[in-house]
Design a protein around this nucleic acid. Sequence first.
DNA 1: CTTTGCGGTCTTTTT
DNA 2: GACCGCAAAG
Length: 989
Amino acid sequence: MASSTPKHAILHGLNDAQRRAVTSDAATVAILAGPGSGKTHTLTARVVWLVDHVGFRPEDVVVATFTVKAAREMKERIGRALGNGRENKIVLGTFHSIARRYLAAYGRHIGLDQKFGIADSDDSRAIITRICKRFQLSVDAAAARAWISKQKAKGTEAASAAARKDAAKLPGQRDLETCYREYQRYLETSNLLDYDDLLVRCVELLRKFPSCVSNVQTVLIDEYQDTNGVQYELMKLFAQRHQRITIVGDPDQSIYGWRSAEIRNLWRLLQEFPSTDEVSLEENYRSSQSILHLSLLVIQQDKKRYQKALKPVHNRGSRPVLRKLKSAATEAEWIVSEIRRAIAMSGSMLTHNDIAILLRSASLSRHIESSLGKAGIAYRMVGGFKFYDRAEIKTLLDYLRVIHQPENNDALARIMNVPRRGIGEVTIKSLLEEAETSGLSLWAVLSKHCRGERTAKTKLTKHAEQRLSGGLLRPLTDIRRRVGEASGPNGTPFGLVQMIEHLLSVLSFEKHLLASHPDDHEQRWANVQEFISLAADFVRDLDRSGDDFLPEIEGLQQTKEAEVLPRFLANVSLASDAQTGDDGQENKPLVTISTIHAAKGLEWPVVFVPAVYNGSIPHVRAEDGDEERRLLYVAMTRAQCLLYLSWPVFGSNGNGERNELSPFVAPVSGSFLDKGPCFDRPVMGEVARILQRKLPPESTIFGGLPALFNPEDNLFPVDPEHSKQEASAGFNGEDGRSGVVVPRAKRPRLQGPPTDQNGGDEAPWRREYTTTMEQSSAFTIASLPGFVSVGAHQAAIAAANAAPGVTQTTDTVKRSTTRRPADQKSILGFVRSNSGPARPAATALPSARMDTALQARQPTGVQPPQCSPAKQAIDPALSGHRLKTGKLLNRPTAASDGDSGKRKQYACFSSSPPRPAAVEDDTGTNTAEVEDDERPEPTRAAACLHVTTCNLPKGLGVGFRRPAGLGRENITPIERLRKPFKPLTISRS
DNA sequence: CTTTGCGGTCTTTTT
DNA sequence: GACCGCAAAG
């Protein structure tokens, strides 16, 4: 074996199912698993396996993720495992960035100008608004934009089918189409691609010139449930040569439906690649049992979902909290008080880094940010406002874009009067119109006018003309020229940073800021400085690890991307956020505030999910209620040890509007604590075990408590309304029918006045027994004494598994089957049987083993790889994923659900984990084991406290470049491929 | 024609 | 609390 990494090292620390997924020799592998089951870890290991063990060249492996953050993390992890910087050769990134890379290299084959720019959402909005005005279209610009984006995202296959179907449709349709057409025409003349175009054009490229990807051996996709139509096509096209695809996903975490993500793509894949090896990972290594239990109670309200097993590995932990507060402001204060309490009562075992506040909308952060700020707690905000969205940064970027692409009318129009040049809105609009109707670019109109070659129809004052010519056109032309010279032999280097600095001085940018933002010009100027250092970092990282390397393919000309500027601009457009440099500010612990969407794939020991009221989750404007529920599920399953949901009873817009508890939470509200848990020794001990940390001795903890510290969560009334009889009683009606075991909501005990409860209560943390660190090893089972490292523990399990006689492995571990449990059907089978018209779901293959399931789809499996057969198999109701909760039209299972709550017979899926409350958590199975692979990276402190930037380790955002042709032996891809696959380590019967 | 000041309107999620 | 449209002053 020519493996650089020994096999056992790749597989080290993986459980059986993960191992099977990693080593599977099937061409297509689908890994379906719930949160915290090590999906990404498994995918990473498979990449390493494919490279080091199977022998694919890294540059022949494509790994696509959905978000920039995921791509960064993936790259870092692969880098750690692979070493030698080989991760830089892998074609790894978001779908959009990979597509851009291919278009930059080969785009001219499909007639794409090499210097194409990327139109961001602001650009497209502006363009579409203008088009709607000019053509007097009777459509809302925003709606048109959404429609156009949907059209593109559908993918060509679906689009052509749809086109036939609704040929004659709504009256608005015509206008929409006109708008679409004009929009595309405009983008083309400005040499711009919008986000969707990147994918669409790449599909076109790979379809017409398959040789571009002829080297690709295998394709791996993370968060597959979020792919949309085009991305699905793109995936297949990348893999067109060898059809080797590995996907990882979880239908329950599909939260991008609004961006045209299609869960259906999962069925579609299984349909089109019938011999796909399905692997499910069932152990949850992240959360405590009680967190998992409650999360499942929430997600199971969706009766149409494909149910997967999810087995907690950890101990029970403390029950999640559902806290009711008076207002959003109180809620924020309460969060601060709980953060302080948790940290203090853990003796600083927990730090701010361990805490996340996850929001449905970024705008909800206002109160929370101000409370944290008042309390002096440092935080960072992920998602929401972005660094590059700041006005001053956008202006600078627009200047850079115009330097790069003079024909970018929108950018030019935006900067024409910034800094002020005495040119108003009206003039600019008129000039833009003139440019568009005359077929010239705005730049051309202006420069011709100023040179006297052609007089613009629009009147310009002498003053404006002068400033335009001297302050805009000339300097930019000048910069452009100097960039050109720099690439010559002896030219003085005029790098990106110099360019920006030059620009700043030519524009007197600091003065401009002072004039236009007298209040906060300092902050804004600081942002500009930050921007410069970002650019410097980018240039440096480009030198170090390179970017955008695509392997050479024989007989196919690549366009080399030489210039820094276009790459910088592309990086900005495609990166969701800036990575700030390592400017001073050591690793100060920061609380994370994030949108739920941006938190996917991450985990924290302590998670707050505020604003769980109707209108926030589910959001008022949300179209798909089930998706909103999944969103809540994603948020809840980020938590490892402590989970807090909360909601303000009264809306914050003054007029005493009442909120309603989220309907996803209300039915199970009784399963929550109504206030923060008492952090006594056992509770904190469990936290420590889950996190594998050392809990300081009690003396240290109490010694460190500030004076007058309140050890309980009783600063705020449990029922802020004082009325004892309202609450959530109304929601319990459905429970019996839906079969969810819900303890009756407990009436919150009436609390005394919030202030004076301290002395009276018996101090709950002062237990009779003291559990010291040493004694706490007794919590864990004898065979694995004390706190062990993950690696050691995994090794122990592995060893135990290897020796069949040894019984000390826990039940949980032993049952970590490598396949679906006996009563869990293939996900494809699930779809099939659900789509059957009157088939009682419960009887459908009640004990289908995988083999039978496989057989079941074999006959139909041989199908033309078109989407039509797949469509047939999908229950339309399901594919829409739009079924309302509780409207369970007389399902035959309803009856069986009702009776004795032993083990629910879910319609054709597995035994599923809502563990009855009676299950003992101390069966000795739960050693403190943790898979830390999905722990968020420690992040650097922001430059200042309240900046909303996300700091990630540097050097990971950029792609990679390698001197072409270096270090590559003359082994053709084909020969590589011929290498025998390693036989499976796990026997399959 | 541009700038400034005022009042009414809305507030998802991301590449 | 930020953004748009409108009216009046420079």
